[in-house]
Design a protein around this nucleic acid. Structure first.
Lengths: 266, 266
DNA sequence: CAGTAACGCGTATGCCATACGCAGAAGGAG
DNA sequence: CTCCTTCTGCGTATGGCATACGCGTTACTG
């Protein structure tokens, strides 16, 4: 149900955050994130603001997870009615995008000019990871399309800049950025899921791991699953790795692969 | 809210698919997937079956997406009442897991004995990708924990087997498997999101891409985002790559990185 | 000072998952 | 053969959700 550019003739007819205004094709609230959208200065002074709404929503998500973020809950947090939020946001998805934008923020300062691509890209990946780990709920937001908010674009910018001197083609640069940020996102998602499972089980990480292993040992016939069975016998399943180490390990593999490509091009 | 092993003393007290029975700690419906759970042979003959329910749910998901899968919808598909499903499944999440298990199926036949790790791992990745691309809705299922169903374990088995001769440690093998399957999943998720955006916009992929590029060009100040701006000027943004090519490109990078590690160990 | 546009919000609709308990079916125990 | 236990399908109810619609009100613009 895409919002038509109706321009209803009489009366109010609907919420204020509707309509795409033709300029960018983006929802009004997203345009606001880009700094467009001058204040209408016609009706009563708004008692709320997009920023306050987003801040409240982020607070709820940080405290109780994304699933606790409902329009009613956010409104309650602000001491207003549910429907008043729709004067600022056309749909919940928009709120999600703005929450993401708020929490992602600007990327860290660019590296010193002489820094090599690998170091720069690694720093970029670690910074992204840190954002995700600080706000695991962000990973639960369904991705609706390519990034179209200022901070997201800034992160892209930083990633592309890191690859400036590599001699890769434009398409390859995009692919590499996609590969690395995909890796970061996936690792963060995995730890988020694991954390949720731990919290749901109520025990310690080691306890959960042990329980999982014993369950699987009972179910999985070693004849049918020999490699898995051998893995279950080994110690690996009973000591949770340092998560930072795991991340660095995978990242090194990915960067190694990229390095081979870059050397081929250079 | 983990299901306690209550064993309520009198009467019925609740749905039939409840309780963990102490054996595995898994929900009853998942145990059924492992072939446990003999028929009770006491009450009336079940008019339904887990398989039929899962089949119906998969049908709905395939036709209208995962979001169309509700207990009521699946029940309607089967001509039964909503609540009767809860005699077979304790919660919707279980149904999700069973849907995933059904659709993932068994991995393809193992490669010929002499096959190298790289070829085997690549085939494994491509096969996984094919499953995802045939059932994009699977990617919308929230991951609740490590895989504990027969087919999922079978895929793990196949992946670990591919790394048998590599000299990697057990922990490294797990990391590598995680890395590759994460890559596959991420790529599939990206194409699923892109596809959803295209469908939502109603236009062609090229049209969407062009619209996105022009929007961003209008919003992103080239002074602040020079690399992005340059990218938007180039042709890359206006020709959608062959998706298979994109996938292969990233996979090659990942496998290259893994190859370096394996050579170091060998 | 009238008109108009934006404001906050009450109400209503139509989804959703699922708790609870009833009535009837079918096998096992006596 | 009968009764009792257990399991079946399902009607009903609860509490949540996003959001459409329109009312009364506010505050600026002509």
């Amino acid at each position: 149900m895409a919002a038509h550019d109706s321009g209803s003739s009489s009366g109010d007819g609907g919420s204020g955050a509707r309509g795409t205004r033709g300029e960018t094709g983006l929802p009004a609230s997203i345009e606001a994130a880009w700094g467009l959208r001058e204040r209408p200065s016609k009706g009563p002074k708004p008692g709320l603001s997009l920023d306050r709404i987003v801040e409240a929503a982020v607070g709820v998500a940080a405290a109780e997870g994304l699933s606790a973020v409902s329009m009613g809950r956010v409104a309650k947090e602000l001491g207003v009615s549910t429907m008043s939020l729709y004067r600022y946001v056309a749909a919940k998805d928009e709120l999600y995008i703005l929450m993401q934008e708020a929490v992602v923020g600007l990327p860290p300062a660019p590296p010193d000019p002489g820094t090599g691509w690998r170091e720069a890209l690694a720093a970029w990946a670690w910074a992204q990871r840190e954002v995700f780990h600080r706000n695991l709920w962000v990973l639960r937001i369904p991705i609706s399309g390519p990034p179209a908010t200022p901070n997201s674009v800034a992160w892209w910018e930083r990633g592309l800049t890191a690859l400036e001197e590599t001699g890769l083609s434009d398409g390859e640069k995009i692919s590499v950025i996609l590969l690395v940020s995909g890796y970061v996102r996936n690792e963060a998602l995995l730890t988020a899921d694991l954390g949720a499972a731990i919290e749901a089980s109520g025990g310690s990480p080691e306890e959960l791991l042990r329980r999982y292993a014993t369950t699987l040992k009972r179910l999985a016939d070693p004849a049918r699953y020999p490699a898995v069975a051998r893995m279950l016998e080994s110690d690996v399943m009973y000591e949770a790795d340092e998560p930072d180490f795991e991340f660095g390990f995978g990242l090194d593999r990915v960067l190694d692969g990229i390095e081979i490509l870059i050397r081929k091009r250079g």
